[in-house]
Amino acid sequence: MSAARRGGGRLGQRLSRATAVLGCLLFLGGFVLVAVLYQPYAIPTDSMAPTVRSDDRVLAHRVAGAEVRRGDVVVFRQESWGELPMVKRVVAIGGDTVACCDEGGRLLVNGRPIVERYLDVGEPASTTPFEHEVPEDELFLMGDRRADSLDSRTRLTEGEPATVPRDAVTARVEATVWPPDRFGLLPRASGFADLPGGLSQPGPFRPLLWAIGSGAALILLSVLTGPLLRGAARIGEGDGPRRK
Rank of each mutant, 00 (worst) to 15 (best):
V58G: 04
V134M: 01
L28H: 02
T163M: 06
W81P: 02
T163P: 00
G12T: 06
E237M: 11
F76Q: 11
L26M: 14
G23R: 14
T154N: 05
G240T: 05
G236F: 05
A162W: 00
Q13A: 12
V164M: 04
P44H: 10
G30A: 06
R89P: 04
F76K: 14
V87S: 04
I235M: 10
L26I: 05
C100R: 03
T157H: 09
A125E: 01
Q13S: 07
V58H: 07
I93Q: 10
R70I: 12
M142F: 01
A4C: 03
G231F: 12
F205Y: 15
E133M: 03
K88Y: 02
E133P: 00
T176I: 14
V173I: 09
E158K: 07
G23E: 08
D102E: 10
A175C: 06
M86L: 14
R14M: 12
H132Y: 15
D102G: 07
R6T: 09
M86T: 05
R230H: 12
R53P: 02
P196S: 10
D137F: 05
E174F: 04
M48P: 02
V58S: 04
E79F: 09
W178A: 14
A18P: 04
G236L: 09
G236W: 10
L108W: 10
M86A: 13
S214R: 01
G94D: 06
A92F: 00
S126G: 06
G159P: 06
A99K: 03
I212R: 12
P196C: 06
Y118L: 09
